[in-house]
Amino acid sequence: MIERISTEDCIGCEICVDVCPMDVLRMERERPAIKYPVDCISCFNCEMACPTQAIYVNAERAREIALPW
């Protein structure tokens, strides 16, 4: 799940919002907000695309899912 976006490092380029496959991020007041965290699938698109390494994604699952047992 996306854990945080560093406000110090973020330059407001909007690339993260553009590349998120699940529409988790939206621009609010010229900065990306984690608007829909439950939809994050830890694909790492945003972290990899961020030009200033401002984004930190961990591997924890964002939503409860049914398991096989």
Partner: peptide, 19 residues
């Protein structure tokens, strides 16, 4: 949407149903 999805998953994903 989250509640509905979980209900659907619970019908299908269990070992005893789908595998």
């Amino acid at each position: 949407t989250e509640s509905l999805l979980l209900k659907i998953q619970r019908c299908i994903v269990p070992y005893d149903t789908v595998i």
